[in-house]
């Protein structure tokens, strides 16, 4: 028999290293001779889209398009330390460092432009689409390329962002060890085949608090990917560690979701800008994954009335649990 059920899971998650551990990102911004801006950070791109989102932050500060940002993050010999691409921290932490560096550079650019244009002050100077001009007199303008050419050495600024993290009280377990926190919730509908124990995810919705969506498309990609990892965690993936050795060491026995196992996901992006974040944006890499497994296990409970307490919920385990429940039910009847 096929039985359907729905379940939800919701979580909050602290991003960054947290618990008093120093969480520091550095960034360098430089005006290049062609008027483009180079950003140097040691922030790793692993496919999550850090390069894109962080370039957007730089472009926003400097009134440029992302095409005018030359983003250098692969070469550790010329980039400062921006910490690991872990703990969902790059958008918030390195994003903040980039924003600070670009703001400093922008001030330097305006100062040079002031002298170049023979003005008294940088007040009311606009930097937009590669030009600096007084907002009251846009015709009087100088391009970033001209500014760069007029200088003997290039303008360059470094900034450091150190996140606020406090140690939690060891005795009581109380405190606010992380900053910022992010919230998400997931709902799924599953269909359980009571003959085989197989669980199919029919429908899914995932709502993620992002602070501010710098790049909604990238966030959607993270939600899809996080859901797939959460679903794999709940239903398939088992390293089977025996005596310190990984038994399931190939894709033949370590199963991850395929395209046929994934439902289309209704994605809800919730924006509630975080005051200490770059343009309000928080990290979401891990959070999108976390509510998925509890939602699936709750949906299984709703479908067949068994509370699974061990993951992955493989067909064998679920079948056994369903049988056990039927047996106690029948015994109760006799």
């Amino acid at each position: 028999m096929k039985k359907r059920g729905i379940g939800i899971g919701s979580i909050f998650y602290g991003t960054g290293y947290g618990n008093g551990f120093p969480d520091v990102s550095k960034a360098v911004a430089q005006l290049k001779s062609d008027g483009k801006i180079a950003i140097y950070v040691g922030a790793t791109e692993v496919g999550q889209g850090a390069k894109t989102a962080l370039s957007q932050i730089a472009a926003e500060v400097l009134g440029l398009s992302v095409d005018d940002i030359v983003f250098i993050n692969e070469d550790t010999s010329i980039t400062p330390d921006s910490g690991t691409a872990a703990a969902s921290r790059q958008t918030y932490n390195t994003g903040n460092a980039i924003k600070l560096a670009c703001e400093k550079l922008k001030r330097d650019i305006l100062e040079v432009a002031k002298d170049y244009l023979g003005l008294n002050s940088i007040v009311g100077l606009t930097l937009k689409n590669g030009y600096v001009y007084p907002k009251t007199l846009p015709e009087k303008r100088v391009s970033l390329g001209e500014i760069s050419e007029s200088l003997e050495s290039s303008l360059k600024e470094e900034a450091v962002f150190t996140a606020q993290t406090t140690e939690m009280d060891e005795e009581t377990g109380q405190g606010a060890p992380y900053w910022p926190y992010t919230f998400s919730a997931c709902g799924v509908e599953v269909e359980v085949d009571t003959e085989t124990g197989r669980v199919e995810i029919i429908r899914a919705v995932l709502a993620q608090d992002v602070g501010r969506a710098i790049n909604p498309e990238l966030i959607e990609g993270q939600i899809d990917g996080g859901f797939a990892m959460g679903a794999g965690y709940a239903l398939y993936e088992d390293l089977k560690i025996e005596k310190g050795k990984i038994k399931n060491n190939s894709f033949t026995n370590y199963l991850i979701p395929t395209s046929l196992d994934m439902p289309d996901i209704e994605k809800v992006i919730i924006e509630d800008p975080e005051s200490t974040a770059p343009y309000g944006a928080k990290g979401i890499g891990e959070p999108v994954m976390i509510p998925v497994a509890p939602a699936i296990l709750n949906a299984i409970y709703d479908a067949v009335g068994v509370r699974m307490t061990e993951i992955p919920v493989t067909p064998e385990k679920l079948l056994k649990a369903i049988k056990e429940k039927e047996m106690t039910y029948n015994e109760g009847k006799n």
């Binding site: 990609g221 899809d224 990892m229 991850i256």
Partner: peptide, 9 residues
């Protein structure tokens, strides 16, 4: 197999 995208995109 894809470990990153969840296939939907």
């Amino acid at each position: 197999l894809c470990r990153c995208t969840g296939y939907n995109k």
